[in-house]
Amino acid sequence: MQPDPFAHALISAGEFPECDRAAVYRVIETRRDVRDQFLPDPLPDDLVMRLLGAAHSAPSVGFMQPWNFILVRDPEIRQAAWSAFSRANDEAAEMFPEERRDIYRSLKLEGIRKAPLSICVTCDPDRAGPVVIGRTHDPRMDVYSTVCAVQNLWLAARAEGVGVGWVSIFHEEDLRALLGIPERIRIVAWLCVGYVDQLYREPELAVKGWRERLPLEDLVFTDRWGEC
């Protein structure tokens, strides 16, 4: 048998110590989408870079690493983004049945103005060229990879005592014009990022009666769709 020429690059795949495993699961289970509870304190640059480093360590199909991160601290830009969101949010409210609109409008979505930092996460579909390992038959894999980066950042932020809120209620062309994003670049997420001193024990939408968490056992099939 020929020796593995890359053996020097391997590390142990053993499980982590119990305390480390518990910390990982605690971060996952207590992560929340923060809408209004941000504190105004600025985030230190080294902390922001740790969060971005966690995002940049995300898995990506074909190792294409399609993400970019636009750090938005300018209050005027954040106010313009909030205005674009507000217009879209008014449109969104009218899409729900009348009996749900009051609950929808009661949700405080002030993260864009309250959080000291926003991060616009984008996806460059051309980063690894026209043919990418793993994307040959599903062109969406670049966006899925970028979403993994968002999740990494979110979990790292939870461990750092930093809240994150994902704002998706925009017309894309408004953000594209505001931030000078080229047409070929996909806009994946606008994240509001800042310190928080409290989080909801359960997801806010569950606490406020919008929707309950589904039972896991109802979502797991064996071997074929619909078979338990």
Results as ranks from 00 to 15, higher is better:
D36H: 13
A88L: 08
L10F: 04
E160G: 03
M49K: 12
P40R: 09
K208H: 10
A88G: 10
D36E: 15
E98R: 08
Y200W: 11
V131C: 13
W210D: 09
E76K: 15
C19G: 13
K114H: 02
R213Y: 05
L219H: 08
G129N: 08
G53Q: 08
P125K: 01
T122V: 08
A9I: 11
H8I: 13
F16D: 15
I187N: 04
S145N: 07
A115L: 04
T222F: 11
A88P: 05
F6K: 15
R213V: 08
D33W: 02
D218V: 07
P97L: 07
I112V: 09
V167D: 08
D20F: 11
V167Q: 11
F38K: 06
R32G: 05
P66I: 04
V207H: 09
F96T: 09
A84N: 10
L52P: 00
Y25K: 13
V207G: 09
V220F: 00
A206W: 04
H56L: 14
A93K: 07
L178R: 09
A93R: 04
V61L: 09
W82D: 14
L51K: 02
G134T: 02
A157G: 04
K108T: 09
M64F: 02
R26A: 14
A92I: 04
V164T: 00
G165R: 04
V207I: 14
F170I: 09
R184V: 10
L39S: 06
A22V: 03
L39M: 12
R176H: 00
D174N: 12
V121N: 03
E91G: 08
R87I: 15
P59A: 14
I187V: 08
E91F: 14
G226N: 07
G194V: 02
A9L: 15
V164R: 00
R87M: 14
F63A: 15
A54P: 02
T122M: 07
G180P: 03
G53L: 03
K114E: 05
E94N: 10
V72W: 06
W190L: 06
L43V: 03
R211N: 05
L117P: 05
L43Q: 03
E76Y: 11
D126V: 08
L153K: 00
S145M: 03
R73H: 12
N89P: 07
L205P: 01
I181N: 10
G111N: 07
V193Y: 03
M1P: 14
P182E: 07
D126W: 10
S106L: 01
S57G: 10
S145L: 06
P59S: 12
P66V: 01
V34W: 05
F85Q: 03
E227N: 13
L191N: 02
D33T: 08
G62K: 00
A22I: 06
D126L: 12
S57A: 13
R31Q: 06
K208G: 07
M49P: 01
